[in-house]
Nucleic acid binder design. Sequence first.
DNA 1: CGCGACCGAATGAACGTTCAATAGACAATA
DNA 2: TATTGTCTATTGAACGTTCATTCGGTCGCG
Lengths: 190, 190
Amino acid sequence: MEKIAEKKKAILESTLKLVKENGFHGTPMSQVAKKAGVAAGTIYHYFDSKDTLIMELYLYTQYRVLDAMRENSREDMDYKTLFFSNWMSRCQFYIENPDALCFMEQFVNSPYNNRCSREQNERFQKEVLQFIERGIEQKYLKPMNQRLMCIMMHSTALTAAKIQLAGQVSLGEEELQQLAQMVWDGIKLN
Amino acid sequence: MEKIAEKKKAILESTLKLVKENGFHGTPMSQVAKKAGVAAGTIYHYFDSKDTLIMELYLYTQYRVLDAMRENSREDMDYKTLFFSNWMSRCQFYIENPDALCFMEQFVNSPYNNRCSREQNERFQKEVLQFIERGIEQKYLKPMNQRLMCIMMHSTALTAAKIQLAGQVSLGEEELQQLAQMVWDGIKLN
DNA sequence: CGCGACCGAATGAACGTTCAATAGACAATA
DNA sequence: TATTGTCTATTGAACGTTCATTCGGTCGCG
């Protein structure tokens, strides 16, 4: 991730928090400015409009997720371990960053997402997709539509985080492992 | 579901469509009124405010999902068949009602959801939760946290619908079955 | 001086909501 | 049957507020 001016970062992070608490509407630029400790006009020094601020925040957050996943995985891990690591990283990231989870979910289901170029989304998925392709080639996974496998990985991790945050269940490391195991059982070969 | 005045229904359904296309913000009451073929003031005859309109739309949609699931299940089905039926119904409902999917996802991740009483959400989950409890008691499912099982069912069905609608993959009946099978494999006992 | 970062009051458009007025349905009265 | 009163459903112009965005100006640094 390239370097980001301090104020720009402050604006991004303030927006994240406020969107979680108040939603897209309900988050006026004036409030973002206040929370970020800058003047209203300053935001427009870094972003063309509220819309582009939101878009950039989306990309910024995508990178943070990818980074989190890469951070916990090492070259020497075997396939299954890597799978668990990826699943857990993603889940943990969202649990540790509820603001991000909330924002991302709101974003992808909003009309903003359509305005977002398809390539941007593809780039994000490519890494996961390749990982799954490899699993099929090397006979770890059922030979199935790779996108479907993505569903299993992504949606379960995300929803686990959501449920955890909703306070309906408290999921310890152990239970997260169990969940990952369920997913693995669902897609592994045999 | 109790009878709903025609205009009220028109308002609800217009809101659903508009929220999908334009998001919560971006959907002014004036537009809702226009699409529903009523005057702006009429909305306030049926709903106290924009917020309560959105809340009621949420409950209304929840019932439609439950109804869809019940419609396709019969008393004489065995457990596994019932499981598949429920999963598929939910998935199909969202595929056939993309507006509803979009709206629900935006809603649950928005601050509206916090303002919604916990009971309302509980009531919706209760039926699924009981179904899973029964599966564990009767040794069809792994003896695990029932909420986690819910995650598997709910999130995968939902995400399958999402992916389908994003046009990334076209999922036929067959592929949906495969997905349901994956979920089943992940949670069944043995 | 010149330039980019930054400020924040001002602006104008958009929005949620209100309300006085109207129309229609129904019942009671004469 | 005609008349009156009441209540609900509906209208849409008007109101007051809020918000995204602008812009003239300040500051500090090279």
